[in-house]
Each structure stands twice: as C-alpha cells, then as structure tokens.
C-alpha cells in the first residue's frame, strides 16, 4: 500500500517537473503583468530620483477615460461594436461555407485551400494597407439598390447592415480557422443519422435544423469564443492606439493605459460571457 502510494507521489512529482515551466512562465509573463496592470490603474505613478512613487487615486483614471478623454470613448465604442457585429457574421458565414464544402464536390481541396489562405497572411499592417489602398473594397456598395435602401432607414436599424456591406472582405478573411473547425465537426456526424432522417421523410431544410445544427452546437460555441478573442487581440483595433498612445503620458505614465486596457478586458470578457450564456447547452 505504502509502496504504491510512493510510486504515485513520484509520478506526480515527475509530472509537475515537466509542467513547472508553464507555472513559472504563467506567474512571470502572464499573471504578474495581468494583476500589475490592474494595480497600476488605481495608482498615480511618479518617477523621482529615489525611485518610483505611487499614490492611490481610486477610479480617477477610469472616470477620466469616459469623461475627460476625447478619443478613447470613440475608439472603444468602435472596437466593441465591431466585435459584437462581426462575430455572429463570421460564425454564420463559416458555418454556411463549411456546409457547402461538406458536399461531394469537385475541387473541394482547392476551395478549402483558398478559404484558408487569409489565416496565413493576415496581420495588422497588411490589413491596414489593403484597406487604405481600396484593395479590400470589392464593390462600391453605394451603387447598389439594397445598400441605398438601408441608408434611408434610421441609423440604429441600418447600422449593422451597412457595417456588413462595408466590411465584407474582413468578415471573409477572419473566418478561415472557423471553417476548418466546422468541417471537422461536420465530418464527425455519421451519415447513418442522415439516412434515417431521409427514410422518415425529412427534407434538407428539416435535416439542417433538426440534426446538423444541434450536433454542431458545441463547435458554434468554440468558434464564437475563438472569433471574439481573435478580433479583440487584433493589432489594428482602434483601442490599441489609445492604449499605446498614452503609455508615456508625462502626467499619468503607464497608469492611464493600464486603466484603459482593463476597461477593454472587462468588456471583452462580458461579451464572451454573454456569448457563452446564449450558446451553452441547455440541459
């Protein structure tokens, strides 16, 4: 008994030995910067001859972000709305494309390759350059009746639709990984389920809503969270500009940027939380 226990303890120790680099790395490179930025956001930092002096200021920087700062509220709202609007569009688009690709078609490998290409080449500066030089605007949406129809509607209703038209290419370019995830999920659904449904007289529309969608649901959740994180961390969000711009402000170095990054963090977590509540399994 005690010998068995000893072997078990030894194995656990060896396991921790292999895993320990992660614990160290987590403490130094993730947990410390994470909590230190929370701490800094409540303190005013001053660099003096004797070292760093910090005084507690409470929520002052958080208040300033929305009441004093002229650009942050705009940048923040833009980034958050773009995440909220793009995520469902990307996930739905990826699901549709993966269902199309899951059919027996010619050149399947070629299409899959094509749709995945942006994952390999996408980076902040590349996307910025493509947008700045009109390479991302596939059609001038203003020419189309449907676009003009939406522009006549009140702002609040038309905004999401106009957003979709204006950002079409970006929505496509951010869905490569998600398409592959969905494809992997679709391929796990056994064809005998479809056969049974077919024999019972179900058509493809019913099969999609009653079989494919419920079975693919866990993948929708994973893809949604992946998309939110992917969009939130992307290098040319307007929020990033605010954070990096204020890093070395003479009257509020580091602290104000930290407060901004925590406002952003809490908002992104809230979006993930809402997505989770909507998409989790209800049983």
């Amino acid at each position: 008994m005690s010998k068995k226990l000893k072997v078990k303890t030894k194995r656990a120790l060896v396991g921790y030995l292999f895993f320990s680099p992660w614990i160290i790395g987590f403490l130094v490179f993730t947990a410390y910067p994470f909590f230190y930025s929370l701490y800094l956001s409540f303190f005013k930092v001053r660099f003096t001859v004797s070292g760093v002096e910090s005084t507690f200021v409470g929520f002052e920087f958080y208040k300033y972000a929305f009441r004093g700062d002229l650009t942050f509220p705009i940048n923040f709202t833009n980034t958050i709305t773009s995440i909220i609007l793009s995520t469902p569009l990307i996930v739905i688009f990826a699901l549709i494309v993966s269902i199309l690709l899951n059919n027996k078609i010619r050149f399947r490998a070629f299409f899959r390759l094509l749709y995945f290409l942006p994952v390999v080449i996408i980076s902040g500066p590349v996307v910025s350059e493509l947008i700045a030089n009109n390479a991302a605007q596939i059609v001038d949406p203003g020419k189309y009746f449907i676009y003009q129809f939406f522009t006549t509607l009140p702002d609040r209703i038309s905004f999401p639709f106009l957003y979709m038209f204006d950002n079409l290419v970006l929505i496509l370019w951010f869905s490569g990984v998600q398409i592959l995830f969905f494809l992997a999920g679709l391929q796990k659904i056994s064809s005998s389920i479809y056969e049974a449904a077919k024999i019972d007289g179900a058509n493809s529309w019913v099969i999609f809503w009653k079989i494919t969608l419920p079975l693919i649901r866990p993948f929708i959740l994973i893809n949604t969270i992946y998309t939110i994180v992917d969009l939130a961390s992307f290098a040319n969000n307007a929020v990033n500009t605010s954070i990096t711009q204020h890093m070395f402000d003479i009257d509020k170095p580091y602290s104000y940027s930290s407060a901004l990054s925590w406002i952003y963090f809490v908002s992104v977590m809230a979006i993930i939380g809402v997505a989770f509540l909507i998409l989790r399994r209800k049983d």
Binding site: P33, Y36, F265, M269
Partner: peptide, 17 residues
Amino acid sequence: ATFLIPAQTTLVTKYIL
C-alpha cells in the same frame, strides 16, 4: 483561461517587466 486574455491587457506591464 490564459487564451482569453486580450494581448492589450498585459501590453503595458509586459513592457515594464
């Protein structure tokens, strides 16, 4: 959980570190 933290949140303090 570490995957969910946006890079921006630790950007400033990583620079300090």
